[in-house]
């Protein structure tokens, strides 16, 4: 964790405070907020959602609309977005989480698509397919986050906070309950754990994080359009979590950074980056189903065990 913080503090000074990479990493931070929640949902509770772009979109549009049309305070708008999104997630989650994973995947997918259609169709309200702009920037105690470097530190502090909280959850009774869902729902139930309730809770939590992420996005880019929250994003988010390793929170961060940075190198392929993502995803799922971080953890464990074995052998000889 400390290494993580140091790395992120040092990064801007390594690449230069005005570098384009700062922008890229701001987006990585914004998306990391969503993937942290998704990691809890997928890796720990074993449920898949293909609609988190919708929750992201709800956050972004609610924040954007309330601040531009009604001149709300951005923080108030952010809270309102959070509430709206969580309620929507609760409404969707309760019926679908009773069913198997496919239904949740498809229901969230449908929700996302409906929302995008809505954003596109209500031209008067949302600006339709071209979206709307002039969303104010965030300010903290009267200090407006104008420069990228300021926003960079702001976003990543929130990510760090979310990460710490997610880790607290994992190493608590709630975290154990979540892991038990993945390990075997039947036995978990017999231990007195109301697994369906926990599934809904995590789902709502992850939706809330996505909404927060959407609000931050709106205030950073100061412009939202339906393209920002299309299905493509939902799929990418799942890909990020899966590639990084869904059974580790760090996997979410690694996967997100990787997939946000990668397109910068794939520019040569122009539109065909999508093909690359698909291939990477399939290869990882087949050869390293626990993702990059999962594979790394397994490797370290194996090395350590071999080292210990050699160690005890040596002691045996002596």
């Amino acid at each position: 964790m400390i290494v993580f913080i140091l790395l992120f503090c040092a990064f801007p000074f390594l690449v230069g405070v005005k570098s384009y990479w700062i922008t890229v990493f701001i987006f990585a931070g914004i998306y990391s907020l969503i993937t942290i929640g998704l990691s809890l949902l997928m890796g720990y509770a074993g449920q898949i959602s293909l609609g988190h772009a919708a929750f992201f979109g709800m956050g972004a549009y609610t924040s954007g609309l309330l601040t531009t049309l009604l001149n709300w305070n951005p923080w108030l708008a952010l809270l309102a977005a959070l509430l709206l999104t969580s309620s929507a997630a609760l409404l969707i989650g309760i019926p679908t989480l009773r069913l198997s994973g496919h239904y949740l995947a498809m229901a969230t997918l449908a929700l996302g698509e409906i929302l995008v259609i809505f954003f596109k169709a209500e031209v008067e309200l949302t600006g339709g397919p071209s979206g709307f702009g002039l969303i104010p920037r965030l300010s903290i105690f009267g200090f407006v986050l104008k420069r990228d470097i300021e926003f960079y530190f702001f976003v990543w502090s929130i990510v760090a906070l979310a990460l710490v909280m997610a880790m607290n959850v994992i190493h608590s009774r709630v975290g154990r309950a979540l892991r038990s869902i993945h390990g075997g729902e039947l036995a978990a139930n017999a231990m007195g754990i109301n697994t369906s309730s926990y599934k809904v809770q995590v789902f709502v939590l992850s939706a809330a994080l996505a909404s927060l992420s959407g609000s931050l996005y709106a205030h950073y880019v100061t412009f939202v359009s339906p393209t920002a929250c299309e299905l493509k994003l939902s799929v990418f988010l799942v890909v990020m979590v899966a590639i990084g390793g869904m059974h580790h929170l760090w996997g979410a961060i690694v996967g997100t950074i990787l997939l946000t940075v990668l397109p910068e190198f794939l520019h040569v392929f122009q539109d065909f980056d999508i093909l690359a993502y698909g291939l990477i995803l399939m290869i990882i799922m087949i050869f390293a189903p626990n993702g990059l971080v999962g594979a790394l953890a397994a490797l370290i464990q194996r090395l350590r065990r071999r080292f210990l074995a050699v160690d005890s052998q040596r002691r045996g000889v002596i």
């Binding site: 997610a166 607290n168 608590s172 009774r173 709630v174 154990r176 231990m191 007195g192």
Partner: peptide, 18 residues
């Protein structure tokens, strides 16, 4: 420890902020 789940009660929010 999972067995103690039922006999304890702190929820998602409280465990998150410890």
């Amino acid at each position: 420890m999972l067995g103690r789940h039922m006999r304890s009660r702190r929820g998602l929010f409280r465990v998150a902020i410890k």
